[in-house]
């Protein structure tokens, strides 16, 4: 009975000690704490490791260190896992919600490919982990814990549905934002203010655009400012808006026209001809019998 009391006290002290040191405690720490390392203490440490209160890590100098594991973070399923599975599970857990690639798991775990795939499959079947396709590379599968929500960098954020890019959604948003900017500009011009005020009135913040889109109700999901900033940038890249830097480092947006109207060479068929390189005085592609030109002249 006394022995059991003693062991409980030791466990409590070890946990206490481990909690104080984030990086983990070494044998030396235990020694300074207890004065000596008895077999009893070591037994209790082993017990703690088995029950996953402590985990064993290799310290800087090659010595073993024990680190306290938060019971909240502690894997719920552990009893029926063998050692290899646990290692893999831990590696995947460390990957967080950005996931981890098979190749990386292999190098970290030092396991061969065949047993590794087997382990991953069993873990997947037991719904402990899941495979998620990354949007950046469609062939690249990453693993993460089953209950985690994949990070934006993996799913691509609001613009992806099941790892497919929703270009229609982006196009619609692009058009609506542009419409909003143009509206603002037209309204500003109508107000008959001084030219400087007209310029200021036609500038929009991202928040204004966000509110406008929210009111329209075209988006099922909540769009963040960041999301709308990317959309506004596409309008800038379309040459339909200007991005004006403010003193506080943020940007305002304003609709503009292109510097010149589209004319010149693009108004005649040669400007947009797909086979202009092959066009010459002789041969089948020649201005004399050019179908594009005939159509244009009709």
């Amino acid at each position: 009975m006394a022995a059991a009391d003693n062991s409980e006290a030791i466990i409590a002290r070890i946990i206490e000690l481990a909690k104080t040191k984030q990086s983990g405690i070494s044998n030396d720490d235990i020694k300074t704490c207890f004065g000596e390392i008895s077999a009893e203490i070591l037994q209790n440490v082993n017990k703690l490791i088995q029950s996953q209160v402590l985990e064993v890590l290799k310290g800087n100098s090659g010595t073993l260190v024990y680190r306290y594991k938060d019971p909240a973070k502690k894997s719920t399923v552990s009893a029926d896992m063998d050692n290899d599975e646990r290692i893999i599970y831990n590696i995947i857990e460390a990957g967080g919600n950005t996931g981890i690639w098979v190749k990386e798991i292999r190098t970290k775990s030092n396991l061969m490919m065949t047993p590794l795939t087997k382990i991953l499959k069993t873990l997947e079947n037991r719904k402990l982990i899941k495979a998620v396709k990354s949007v950046n590379a469609s062939k690249k599968k990453v693993y993460m814990l089953f209950e985690l929500e994949p990070a934006r960098s993996i799913t691509g954020g609001a613009w992806y549905q099941d790892s497919d890019f929703e270009s229609e959604f982006v196009d619609v948003l692009n058009q609506q934002c542009l419409r909003f900017l143009q509206q603002k500009r037209v309204e500003a011009k109508k107000l008959k203010l001084s030219p400087y005020e007209v310029q200021m009135k036609s500038l929009c913040t991202v928040v204004e655009v966000q509110e406008f889109i929210k009111k329209l109700g075209i988006s099922k999901i909540e769009l963040t400012e960041e999301d709308l900033e990317t959309i506004l940038k596409t309008i800038v890249y379309d040459g339909r808006a200007q991005r004006v830097l403010q003193t506080d480092g943020s940007y305002l947006y304003k609709s503009t026209d292109t510097l010149l109207p589209a004319e010149g060479i693009v108004q005649n068929p040669c400007g947009i001809c797909p086979v202009i390189q092959h066009c010459s005085d002789v041969g089948s592609i020649t201005p004399k019998s050019c179908v594009y030109m005939s159509e244009w002249l009709e």
């Binding site: 005649n268 040669c270 400007g271 202009i276 201005p287 004399k288 050019c290 030109m293 002249l297």
Partner: peptide, 11 residues
């Protein structure tokens, strides 16, 4: 432009 102008002239 040269080419296009030439083509127009031919036409």
């Amino acid at each position: 432009c040269y080419k296009s102008l030439y083509n127009l002239k031919i036409r």
